[in-house]
Nucleic acid binder design. Structure first.
Length: 555
RNA sequence: GCGCCUGUAGCUCAGUGGAUUAGAGCACUGGUCUUCGGAACCAGGUGUCGGGGGUUCGAAUCCCUCCAGGCGUACCA
């Protein structure tokens, strides 16, 4: 797969070489220059890239920023890439890309095809990203949708950035919540058969459990009532669990979320890995027995408290499973980097997991925990609570059915993980026509339509050097930002920049379309512009693909 | 109490220490004029960047403090 060197890096190198030459000639004092940072100026008249290096060197060099700027600019070697480079007050160096180089990039984009935007940042580093991993004790909630969109998109972005990414869902099919869930299913089943059974006090009161019990009753009859209670609870529970996991898989698949692996928590017990991991922690001196329980002495690793691994009743906690799970990730499957995406309601898990992997002898920097804030669901002014235990659920399924997967993903992705999110279901439905996702998709459909309209015009021979008008160059500039966007999203683990870029790109395309007739009597210009349109389609489709949003040929 | 996150336009939100006027979408108003898809384009304006200090040549951005909201702070997950 072909990957492109970033324009920004090429320019930074040119500036750095210029500085070295200026220093060699004595035009600049030999002060140390670590890196030449480049930014994208807010305004077009300031060029495509700008550096503040003169301002930063001013003090050490004991020269005015403008004098430094001029000394550097004088030494920048001329290339086909740069059209103009100038020093401007108070001490910026502004770089403008050359018209002809920009025009030629249209050919480069078409040659790259769907690989355009891919970069060589990851260099094959093996990375695992785990997300959603919701308890299979009920349907996925809308909140899980946020984790799903975030994790799946981040995985797409990291793959595009050259990481070797595997996506995983941790199925919490063991432990105390599971027992309570099994008992709840049994109670509802028994109730359906006229028995006086109560849902356990900490049980799940949602109607979905009753539905599930009815379903089991229809398919299996009353046979579980004739089995010993413990065995019936276990067997029926396993059936219910399978259905819940199956539903989660369907919901996520319908949202376009893909997984490479669904990993069972129970398997960690079945293979005795939990026991082995606890032994390891014990032998390394990170455990302590107090009040009949086994504690992880995380306070010795800088955490503010210790955490229970095995309760005094002998049952391991979820934390014991999760450390074991990370033992598996790091020491059995040997991932170089692991990312866990959690909801804010699990933020307390972050410091102890960091301490946990440290105790395993793993560099905690190899584990990144991304915490996304909660979403508040509303229907108009009414706030909707989401809890599987109370049964007051807005399921992901419901949101998908109401809003559709594309709008759903686009919406979830449009906010940074750090921000709480308001999701008004009424509004999302009512405004579906005004949702930015349609604006972006419309641009893609319009492009496809233009290409259809052009019919059999063979534009692959088009001469892109004709593409020098302002709307054309603006569109090319915007398209060329995609690789940098991938870099930013991948290094900062922030996929929320994608929807904004998609909107910008669509807007720039619509504006171009309005100003430039594509298919006209001028055959040469038509061919060139069709190439540009084709390139725009590639870039827009790639952006949408990274977000997991459909790129329709027509709407 | 302590910890994490947040506070930017009427609403929902972007904003990697930099450029006399801090951005986008929605909503609102007016225009385009519609032979390639009008689900479009163009033009309009509001901000004590929560308050107050500090660092810096320069702060929405970094530090301190206060206020407000969300979440966490279990032998739950």
């Amino acid at each position: 797969m072909r990957r492109f060197g970033l324009i920004r890096e090429r320019i930074a190198l040119l500036l750095k070489e210029a500085i070295q030459r200026a220093q060699a000639k004595g035009a600049l004092p030999p002060v140390a220059v670590t890196e030449v940072a480049l930014e994208r100026p807010q305004k077009p008249e300031f060029g495509d890239y700008a550096s503040t290096i003169p301002l930063k060197l001013s003090r050490a060099a004991r020269m005015s920023p403008m004098a430094i700027g001029k000394a550097i600019v004088d030494e920048v070697s001329s290339t086909d890439l740069i059209g103009k480079v100038e020093a401007v007050p108070p001490g910026f160096i502004n770089v403008t890309l050359s018209e002809s180089w920009l025009a030629n990039q249209v050919d480069a984009i078409i040659a790259a095809g769907p690989a355009f935007g891919d970069i060589a940042l990851g260099r094959g580093v093996r990375m695992q990203i785990e997300f959603v991993s919701a308890n299979p004790t009920g349907p996925l909630t809308a909140a899980s949708g946020r984790g799903g969109a975030l994790g799946d998109t981040l995985a797409n972005v990291l793959s595009a950035a050259g990481f070797e990414v595997e996506r995983e869902y941790f199925i919490n099919d063991a432990g105390s919540r599971m027992e309570v869930f099994f008992q709840t299913v049994y109670a509802r089943y028994a109730q359906a058969l006229g028995q006086a059974e109560d849902v356990p006090p900490e049980g799940y009161h949602g109607t979905y459990v009753s539905d599930l019990a009815q379903e089991i009753l229809r398919e299996y009859g009353d046979r579980f009532l004739r089995l010993p209670r413990e065995r019936a609870t276990e067997e029926m529970g396993r059936i219910a669990l399978d259905r819940m996991v199956g539903a989660a898989k369907r919901d996520l698949a319908d949202m376009g979320v893909r997984y490479d692996c669904w990993f069972s928590e129970q398997s960690l017990y079945d293979s005795s890995l939990v026991k082995k991991t606890l032994e390891l922690l014990r032998s390394r001196g990170f455990t302590d027995e107090r009040e009949g329980a086994l504690w992880f002495t995380s306070s010795a690793l800088g955490e503010d408290k210790d955490n229970v691994l095995v309760r005094s009743n002998g049952a391991p906690t979820y934390f014991a499973s999760d450390i074991t799970y990370h033992y598996n990730k790091f020491l059995i499957r040997n991932y170089d980097q692991v990312i866990d995406i959690l909801g804010a309601d699990h933020q307390g898990h972050v410091p102890r997991m960091k301490a946990g992997v440290t105790a395993l002898g793993v560099d905690p920097d190899h584990l990144t925990l991304i915490v996304h804030q909660m979403i508040t669901l509303r229907r108009g002014d009414e706030i909707v609570r989401m809890s599987k235990r109370t049964g007051d659920i807005v399921s992901l399924r419901e949101v998908l059915d109401e809003v559709g997967p594309d709008a759903c993903r686009f919406f979830f992705l449009s906010r940074s993980a750090d921000s709480q999110m308001d999701f008004d279901l009424d509004l999302a439905k009512r405004q579906s026509n005004e949702n930015p996702v349609y604006y972006v998709q419309y641009a893609h459909a319009r492009i496809a339509s233009i290409l259809r309209y052009a019919g059999d015009v063979d534009f692959m021979t088009g001469n892109v050097t004709l593409l020098v008008s302002e709307p054309e160059q603006t569109l090319i500039r915007k398209m060329l930002q995609l690789p940098e966007l991938v870099e930013i999203a991948a290094t900062r683990l922030e996929p929320h920049h994608l929807p904004y870029f998609a909107q910008d790109l669509a807007a720039v395309f619509h504006s171009f379309y309005k100003q430039c007739r594509v298919v006209s009597d001028d055959l040469e210009l038509t061919r060139a512009r069709l190439k540009l349109v084709e390139a725009a389609k590639i870039v827009l489709a790639k952006t949408l693909a990274l977000m997991g949003v459909a790129a329709p040929e027509q709407m």
